[in-house]
């Protein structure tokens, strides 16, 4: 059973001219769980992963696998499996040959390409030219490349992007299974909702800086102070709540009350004799906290 090594970023900075794409990024990704690497588009996720994989040279700092940089790994593909973007293929080459090219370069057994294709469900399409693949199939082929050497560390950039619901369910199970086997799994995404059922830990960056690091549940700020309420006589309901000293905003489907809890608002309405048609405490939820952390750009 392959045992994962931790991924360690230590004060990694990458400058393009005067602009810092990534600045002083430090974090550790532990084996045995799925870690989400999140941030809006342009936050520096891909640049960070490319530095980790030795494709981009950091301006300063180091990104290593248990202390060893990618370039110094004795057998890179059996240690780390990586998939970056969906389009790194020669369109005229078949999927099997695409994988064979890299299996040969890494000295892997000649059975590795077919085994990897089977694992990602492309076994029947190995002889087809990659140029004819759909986006979802390309994503799977990218994943097959990552799995080629049965690595103990997986680094995947936006692996869920472009998959259909069935594919998302499938990759979720696959990644959870690999983490359960003790491997290190790091996946990036610009959408928290895309990975929130898959990841245990999250690392959130924005503008190239670390803004949050912790368990997924640490993002769940459920002590919301907003109440949504509605009644047939909405005008009067709003008036009653306002006169009790609350701040009120009109919504399409009712009234939003700031800094209140549902029980107090319900009692107010009962005392005033107004029959309610809806009453609920609004939950902020993970996505909201994520957007707050990454700033306005996250809304794009």
């Amino acid at each position: 059973m392959p045992t994962g090594v931790p991924i360690e970023f230590a004060h990694v900075t990458k400058s393009f001219g005067a602009v810092d794409a990534v600045s002083d990024l430090s974090f550790t990704v532990e084996p045995g769980q799925v870690t989400g690497f999140l941030g809006p588009n342009g936050a520096g996720k891909t640049t960070s992963l490319r530095m980790l994989l030795g494709l981009v040279t950091p301006t300063s700092g180091t990104a290593t696998f248990g202390g060893t940089t990618y370039g110094r790994l004795g057998s890179p593909l059996t240690t780390v499996g990586a998939s970056l973007e969906a389009a790194s293929f020669h369109p005229g080459r078949s999927a099997r040959n695409h994988l064979a090219v890299y299996a040969q370069a890494a000295g892997l057994p000649s059975t590795a390409p077919d085994a990897a294709l089977e694992k990602v469900g492309l076994g029947a399409y190995g002889a087809r030219r990659v140029g004819g693949y759909s986006l979802g199939m390309r994503q799977r082929l990218g994943l097959a490349f990552a799995l080629l050497g049965d690595p103990s560390v997986l680094v995947l950039d936006e692996p869920i992007n472009g998959l259909d619901p069935e594919g998302i369910k499938w990759i979720r199970l696959l990644l959870r299974g690999m983490a359960a086997e003790g491997r290190t799994v790091l996946i990036s995404s610009h959408l928290l909702s895309e990975v929130q059922q898959t990841v245990d830990d999250v690392i959130i960056i924005s503008h190239g800086k670390l803004v949050h690091r912790g368990e997924l549940s640490s993002l769940d700020v459920s002590d919301s102070k907003q109440v949504q309420v509605n009644a047939d006589d909405r005008e009067r309901l709003a008036e009653v709540i306002r006169s009790a000293g609350f701040e009120v905003a009109n919504l399409r489907s009712g009234v939003l009350v700031e800094n209140a809890d549902a029980a107090a608002i319900g009692r107010l309405a009962f005392d005033a004799g107004i029959p309610l048609t809806a009453l609920s405490q609004k939950r902020t939820g993970l996505e909201e906290s994520f957007l707050t952390l990454v700033g306005e750009e996250g809304a794009l």
């Binding site: 994989l53 030795g54 494709l55 890179p76 970056l84 293929f89 369109p91 890299y102 370069a105």
Partner: peptide, 10 residues
């Protein structure tokens, strides 16, 4: 075709 990425990974 950006295949330098998998090439240099291998």
């Amino acid at each position: 075709f950006q295949s330098l990425t998998p090439t240099f990974l291998a």
